[in-house]
Amino acid sequence: MTIEDIKFVQNFKKITNDAWLKGWHERNGGNITYRLTEEEAVAAKKFINEGSAYTPIGVTVKNLANDYFLVTGSGKFIRNMTVCLEENAGIIKVDEKGENYKIVWGLINGARPTSEITSHLMSHSIKKEKTNGAYRVIMHSHTTNTIALTFVLPLDGKVFTRQLWEMATECPVVFPGGIGIVPWMVPGGAAIAEETGKLMNDHDVVIWAHHGMFCAGESLDLTFGLMDTVEKSAEILVKVLSMGGKKQTITSQNFRDLGKAFKVHISEDYLD
């Protein structure tokens, strides 16, 4: 048995391959992190080396102390995760203070975790607190149609939410918390991590203008499905705009009726 025989690792490899096939991860674009359960950490323990040195995270994430994460590597290609996982991904552990991490498996030959690890861990910290530990995944992808829309729509979360909700009936059911927007910022540092984190307090979907999308969720499948739904809605909107715009649409009252039928709270912030 190898670490790649463990179920959570198999799921991680499948999701990275699915994301590659979607066209969301050109070259070394995008990154995915997964917080292990206690049972998964125990299952992986015999493959883990605790002796490596710690590296500063750049922010403090106290509630992630001693947590383990399976992460994609900096400069690594998502399409290669299924070819050789330990070259392209690894498991890291956060220290007791929530200030540093160390590589305990994989990322061999001098590889490092994704350059956006700070944004990931900040978002993990917020979602862990907000969901009482239920959320375990942060996924960042370069979703084509969503990026395109950041050049033509106002960089306003209310505008993006309403426009994308209207493109498919299931959208407000899948992301009832709406969408947050971060204006263009240099990626990889504490500043963009903090701005993303602020929005993650209220949203599971955050769009980085002219860059891509961040999604948070309980599982790899649910997080992938959330991103897929948003991106499909963005694709429909791009097509609608290219055909001259909407002639009819889903109304605010339609959304209220939908929320009632599906027992989903749809915020009036996004309705007329």
Rank of each mutant, 00 (worst) to 15 (best):
K158T: 12
F175T: 07
T118E: 05
W105G: 00
V173T: 15
P113V: 02
L153V: 03
E96R: 12
I147M: 02
P113Y: 03
I192P: 03
A89H: 00
H120K: 15
G133M: 05
N201E: 13
V182D: 11
N201Y: 09
K128N: 10
D156A: 02
N109Y: 02
R136F: 04
G157H: 05
G90E: 02
F160H: 06
M167C: 11
G189D: 14
G110F: 00
T146R: 08
W165V: 04
V174P: 07
G180K: 04
M167R: 09
L199R: 05
R136Q: 10
I126Q: 07
S119W: 08
V152A: 01
D95N: 14
I92Q: 05
A191W: 11
M185C: 11
H120F: 03
L153A: 03
Q163F: 08
T114P: 05
I138N: 13
S125Y: 09
V173M: 12
G98I: 14
T118A: 14
V94S: 05
T118I: 15
G90A: 02
K128H: 07
P187D: 04
T118S: 11
I126G: 08
A89P: 00
T169K: 14
P113F: 03
M122C: 15
E99F: 11
G180I: 12
P154V: 08
I138C: 15
L164V: 10
H124F: 02
P172E: 06
M139I: 13
A111G: 10
K102D: 00
P172K: 06
K198V: 13
P113I: 01
I147S: 01
M167E: 12
A190C: 14
A190G: 12
H142V: 08
G106M: 01
V182L: 14
A148Q: 03
I108T: 07
V159G: 04
M167F: 00
G110C: 01
L107E: 01
V94R: 06
K97E: 14
M139S: 13
L164P: 04
G98V: 14
F160L: 06
Y101N: 07
F175Q: 03
S123L: 13
T114M: 09
L153H: 00
K198S: 10
I117L: 15
I192V: 14
K198D: 08
T131K: 04
